[in-house]
Design a protein around this nucleic acid. Sequence first.
RNA 1: GGGCGGGUAGCUUAGGUUGGUUGGAGCACCCGGCUGAUAACCGGGAGGUCGCAAGUUCAAAUCUUGCCUCGCCCA
Length: 1094
Amino acid sequence: MSVPAPAGEYDAVELEERGMARWREEKVFSRSIELRQGGERFIFLEGPPTANGKPGIHHVVARSFKDLVCRWKTMQGCYVARKGGWDTHGLPVEIEVQKRLDLKSNEDIIEFGMAEFNQECRTSVWTYEDAWRKMTERMAFWVDLDNPYITLHNEYIESCWWAIQQMFDKGLLYRGHKVLPYCPQTGTSYSSHEVALGYKEVEEPSVYIKCKLEGEGSERFAGASILAWTTTPWTLPGNVGLAVGKEVTYLRIKVSEEASDSWDGRGGAEVGEELILAKDLFKEVIRHQCEVLEEFPGSELIGMAYTPLFPDAVERGDSETAWTVVNADWVTTSDGTGVVHTAVMYGEDDYELGMEVGFPAQHTVDIGGRFIASTHPLLDGRYVKDCDDDIIDFLADENLLYREKMYVHDYPHCWRTGHPLLYYAMDSWFVRMTAVKDRLLEFNDQVEWAPDWVGEGRFGEWLRNVKDWAISRERFWGTPLPVWRDEQGGMKCIGSISELQAEVAKAVAAGFDNPECPDDVDLHRPVVDDFTLVNAEGKAMKREPFVMDCWFDSGCAFFAQWHHPFSGETDLENNFPIDYICEGVDQTRGWFYTLLAVSTAVFDSICYKRCLSLGLILDAEGKKMSKSKNNVIDPWDHFNREGADSTRWYMMVAGAPWNPMKFDPNGVRETYGKMFLTLWNVYRFHADYAALDKFDGEDAESGPPVAERSPLDRWILSRMHSVAISYHDQFASWDFHKAGRDLEDFVVNDLSNWYVRRSRRRLWDENESGDKRSCQATLHEVLITVCRLMAPVAPFMVDEIHLNLCGESVHLADWPIAADVLGPDGSATEEQPGLPPLDAALEARMALVRLLAENGRRIRVDAKRRQRLPCLEGWIVGGPDLSKFHDLLGEELNVEKISTENDLDRFQKIELQPNHKALGKKCRGDLPMVLNALDLIEDAEIALDDIREGRMVLAGYHIEVGDIEIRRVERIGYAAQTFEVGDEVKVDVSLVLDMSLDSALLSKGLARDIIRRIQQKRKDLDLLIEATIDLDVWLPLGCPELVEVDWAWVKAETRAEPATLHVGAPDEGEAGESEDSEVESFTVDTDTIYFSVQ
RNA sequence: GGGCGGGUAGCUUAGGUUGGUUGGAGCACCCGGCUGAUAACCGGGAGGUCGCAAGUUCAAAUCUUGCCUCGCCCA
């Protein structure tokens, strides 16, 4: 038994808060999962947020899409566990703490105390945890935040260590160099994020240097100098090669005259000296009169040797390519000379190129930013940025300088000290992703990406160019790299706490001092740094002083959340690979990549099967939301106004999930007003009457069988069926936005604006009637289905409705589309047994009825016939039989009698229209001529006969029936509209209205006008629907007569008892005895009518 | 500089793969109608060089190329 309670007003915030409390008390979330125990598992992995920043609206978007899929799958019967997670390590945390404690450098941190610093980080990570929890609950993201995985936990770190060891053992982990922006003052290398904080525009000397070609292999250009350009003279001692583009065109030129007097700065060239540079840059660079000796592609320069600028700075070692010209595809002629000076240790491209071609990789600058002893006597031991001038002098003296030029550019500076950053090759650890590239690509092919172009394009492209992953950071707060190294370079990688304990014990036995290493040893720095291990020779091993890239942490989430392989043996088995992940598209090279990278390197497996990549959230003006622009939208603005339902629904409907979303606060408002208020009022209409009538929708006896209900009922039920199926199918193909728009259209247009509007009077009936119960049963069934369809997206309101109508939470209910009739791709292929019967013909017919109703109103407007004045007759010409709906149409259009008329020609003639597609194929270039000829045809009837009998030739082309389309248009003088209906077979349907007028019609029209005014008055007076009134109406002389039946109708409709009809205008004082009644008037056509209501 | 995606009415957008009749909606605006129908509804109007240019074609918002512009990622 579940008779609904009346609905009351819609107060989104109050309703949702009530819902939250109910879910909490009744443990609806956990019950919704437990209920599907034994169902197919749908594995979701939550991308862990960091709680050291405030949650914003973009987080709500991502969480909405996570939640809706999980809820949807749950309702389909899947077991969907949802473990929460927190990302707690990493740079942003450290920066935050450094700012707060004013620690400017790594040295400052060490001085402050690494342990204390990390303790600060550990606390800082949770700054906004409460804000996150509140947001999560308020937006109704169902995720288990009571048992989350947390990346700073020992168990989590231990799992990460295990994975690192796996990679180490497979030879996928190695130590190398990485060129990073580095600040010698703070001793810190910077991430791009930090670099971005400190760009400054500076003017610096740039130099064109001459590298003289000579020696073996350089015979072709012997004696000529290649011109190279750099903006960082301090890197010149480290020069070990020159890069050219093999397809770039170069010139060899000969200086033919002395430089002019206007020569600016140091450097120069002598007459007869030969120089080589890119053709495109010749004019820009060269300041001498020159003779062009030859033109050739860069490929001819490759392999040439030149004289080192600073012969003592770098040792050749066994390099065969040092100080030669090599090819690099990235060389351009946009600036410089088309020849790129390469200092392996001081540029990322330089380093990669150096590794590729085998240049010597040696530092000329130490970690403090000073030149290493033996670089050059002028420079040794000096801070590099102080040496620019001396280096230029030296080059000029040696005749190695062609020109100097001041150069203005944006250059990264340390955001803490303001010093310029140096690009510097740092010791670094890498995962050899290049070794598993094929597997990465293979696994990526198996992922179902939404949208597919992210997987194929953006991500696929990235994978095809995959580089080794630099996973170490010279930082403090993170998962420590568990590698210990001896002075000879021997290494040991630790994969668990117990292994660490064993190794520590071994070292202690070998005589090394070590702190205690208990079971709950903190796996962070500096604790782990303090352990000294021992190698096979009994020598000490110290830990490599790095922490892991925090992306590595989150990339381990799929197994580290279970503390694999140390506990929960079956957890990973049951939860891998992942069915669904969803994050912003900015995670493509972030989490999407690191998950796949870790699962490939460690498990040699696919990681996730489906990935929804969300577009960025922009503000209403299309700008990225950022704190600095102050355009971040606080989700609570909407939670506290329109509520989470409207906010979530808006997010789904606003656009395809992968498109950038311009978050428009007005859009949320619109969703609230349109979708949710409308649905609520439909529900309220039903619930209020159901409560009044003690209607129990769950009682099978309460509603007549569908087949016995009115066509209107059967229509909305069939529509419900169709909409449910397409909604489901659009979910299955990730088109959530389309699904939402369709359902919104159904609720607003089909259900509210048509079904409920057309059904209102049925429920007013105070007696029990089969028709009333049909309507109530229908509303009940439709509302239940709508609730279930909406539940994954907007979980609050529909839960309240569902609960009130059938006594059960919608989140424990089943998805209306039964899982066992789904096709292989998850789409609903068959008719759904759980849904009401489908009746396509009825839907088509009703669509036509509505079309006729809309167009009928247009006919009235065109004919200037106001709606309240009835028409005597209307005819429908052509189309399917609509006789069941004639009464309905009559009411809609205020036409006394609608009938079917078969004689089309009575109102219509035909016109011939070209079928462009068919004619275009046939006539090609002559199409305009044919169209013109068709246009000139005067009698379409005759022409049509000619065409049908194959006699029609236009502009030399034989015209067939398929080449033209026949359109029916009303004959002049009729108030009519014609339109084409049908999907495959087109049929013309016309509606014709009789515009004649007589006194009976005028009387009815008058009655309607009066009723309308009185009803408005009743509403203004806030009268109860069942309240009666005292009514006086004064009709002026000359006004159309109001016949008795129409006056009776007025009285009945307005519940007027007693009621008096007067002729003429009211006298003073005749307005009734009571003070609160007053005489009002209104005008119909030209007549002024007075009335008073008491 | 490279990769990916976007640019359609004042705003938000559909359509774009498969070229074909007059480029659809919603919000806002104007006019009219209707309402015991809700922050509602209905009819009409105004509002578009479909980013620009060239090309292919009888025909381009749609296909091709180049450019401009915005965003993301990478350099």
